[in-house]
Computed example of a mutant assay.
Amino acid sequence: MKAVTDLKVDYDTAAWDGVISAQQKVVDQMKEDELKASAVIKLIEALPSADKVTVANKGQIEAAREAYKLLTDTQKELVDVTILEKAEEALKQAIEATPPFYTGKVAFKATKNGSTFTTTNKEIDFFVNDEGFKEIKISMGDVTEDFKTKVGNFTITEEIVNGTTYFRVITDKEYYASKTQTWRANADSVDTSIKGTVKFQATLTPYLSIESQQFYDWFTKK
């Protein structure tokens, strides 16, 4: 009986080398995946926490997202994007809270029997002026439409007359809401019951309504 050490094992050298080569490729690919995923993880971990994200972080956050997009599906499985997603959501909110702001629908009916003019997507600025009163400005921009030709740019200014607080509207084009004609809404009649919309209701049916979440939040803030 031959000893085990005397036995000769025949094998296909080329086939065996092929197995070894394939295994090495798998190992090399795993190392490459880990390396590329690690680079993206470092970019994500370098992002500020959601409560500290500002518009200034926009480039950094976008770079991390783009780097993640370049990974293969296998490499993406190695990356936790929770921090990145929270940073992106915080950035979205920061951008929305940064001027310039734009309106949704704006509607103005200056007189009881007059026409109602509407427009959308107009730049809106709102602030407390030097006298301590709310002031709102809406600009038409470079457009051609009835609202611009019939109403034009306008301001809304808070004022107190004989102890009563009003919001006076002065437009560029509407005669009944001009510097020489008084169009105003009593502060007590301003309707903010629809979230995102502020409606200045004058006597009887005339009104001015403005859709803008940022303006609404500012106007209704106590």
Rank of each mutant, 00 (worst) to 15 (best):
K134Y: 09
W183V: 11
V169P: 01
T119Y: 10
K150M: 12
E174N: 04
V128D: 07
K179M: 05
F133V: 10
F126C: 07
T157A: 08
F126Y: 12
Y175D: 10
K195N: 05
N121Q: 14
T157H: 01
E123Q: 15
K122A: 12
T180P: 01
V128F: 10
F200A: 11
I210G: 08
F154C: 01
F133I: 03
T120S: 14
V161M: 03
I160S: 08
E123V: 13
E145Q: 04
F147R: 03
V198E: 03
G196L: 02
T203W: 10
T155G: 12
I210L: 14
L204S: 15
G141M: 01
A202E: 14
F167T: 09
F200Y: 15
D146T: 11
I194C: 00
K150V: 02
K134T: 09
T192N: 03
V143I: 07
T171D: 00
K179I: 09
I138E: 02
L208I: 11
Y176S: 12
P206A: 05
T144L: 02
D130Y: 05
A202S: 15
T182N: 12
Y166G: 08
Q201C: 15
E123Y: 08
I136E: 01
F126T: 12
F167L: 10
D172K: 09
E174I: 02
S139F: 00
I160Q: 09
A185E: 07
E123H: 11
K137F: 12
F133L: 14
W183Q: 06
T205S: 06
T164F: 06
F167V: 13
T118H: 13
F200K: 06
V128K: 14
F127A: 13
E159A: 05
I194D: 00
T203G: 07
Q181C: 03
G152A: 03
E135M: 12
D125Y: 12
F200Q: 05
N129T: 07
F154L: 04
T165V: 15
K122L: 14
G132A: 03
Y207C: 10
L208G: 11
G152I: 09
I136K: 01
T118G: 02
T118E: 14
E135C: 08
G132H: 08
V151Q: 00
V190N: 08
W183N: 07
S189L: 14
N186T: 13
I160C: 00
I170T: 15
D146G: 06
G141L: 01
M140E: 10
D188F: 11
S209T: 13
F200S: 10
N162G: 01
T149D: 04
Q201H: 15
R184C: 07
D130I: 08
T164D: 13
A177E: 06
N129D: 15
T144A: 09
V169N: 07
P206R: 01
Y207Q: 05
Q201T: 11
Y176H: 09
E159Y: 02
Q181M: 07
